[in-house]
Amino acid sequence: MIKKMRWIPVILVLTLVGTDVFAAGAAEGPQLGQAVSKEEIARWEISVMPDGEGLPVGKGTAKQGKSVYQTHCLSCHGKNGLGDSADQLAGAEFGLTDEYPDKTIGTYWPYATTLFDFSRRSMPMHAPGILTDNEVYAVTAFLLYLNGIIGLTDEMNAKTLAKVKMPNRDGFINVYKENQKVD
C-alpha cells in the first residue's frame, strides 16, 4: 500500500541526531537513482513478512513435502530433520530452560513464515532457488509437521501459513524496543 508521502519523519529524525550530511545540505544528493516499475520490483522481491505479506500463490502439504525433503534436504539435515552436517530441524529432546536446550523450529522459531522466506531464498545450500513455490510450501509443511505443529495433510498456502501459531511465538524480548523506547 502506498502511504501518503511525507517528509516530516525523516527530517525530524535527522534534526534530532544532527547528521552533518543534512547540516551541509548534501541531503539533496545528485539524484542518480533510476525510477523502477512495480513489475521490475516484483522480479527482485522475495521477502515474506510475518503477517504473510509477500507469500506467493501456491500450496503444499507435509505429505507432499516429505519427498521434497528427501530429495533436497536430507543429505545435510538428516533423517526426519534430526541434523547431520547441518542444523537439527526437528525432534527436540530438551526444552529451552534445560541444561542443554534444543533450539529447533518447534521449540524456538517464533514465525512459520520465516521458514518459507528462508527455505526459498537460501536452501538447499548447493542449489538455492531450485525449489518451486509449491515445493517450498510443501517442505515448509513437512518441517512444521515433523515438529508436531500441523497435521500431515494440512494445506499450507498464503493464507494458512501466516496463521500457524508457533509454540515459541512469545518467547522473545525485544531488547532494541526496551532500550530505545520506540515501536
Binding site: 520465516t114 522466506d117 522473545f172 524480548i173 531488547v175
Partner: peptide, 21 residues
C-alpha cells in the same frame, strides 16, 4: 521481517527460557 537470522539465530536464549532479540 523476522528473518531466520534475527529469530532462530542472533538471538540470545536466557536462563528464563526467553530470548533477547
Amino acid at each position: 521481517i523476522m528473518t531466520r537470522n534475527e529469530t532462530a539465530r542472533y538471538t540470545e536464549l536466557q536462563p528464563s527460557g526467553k530470548a533477547r532479540m
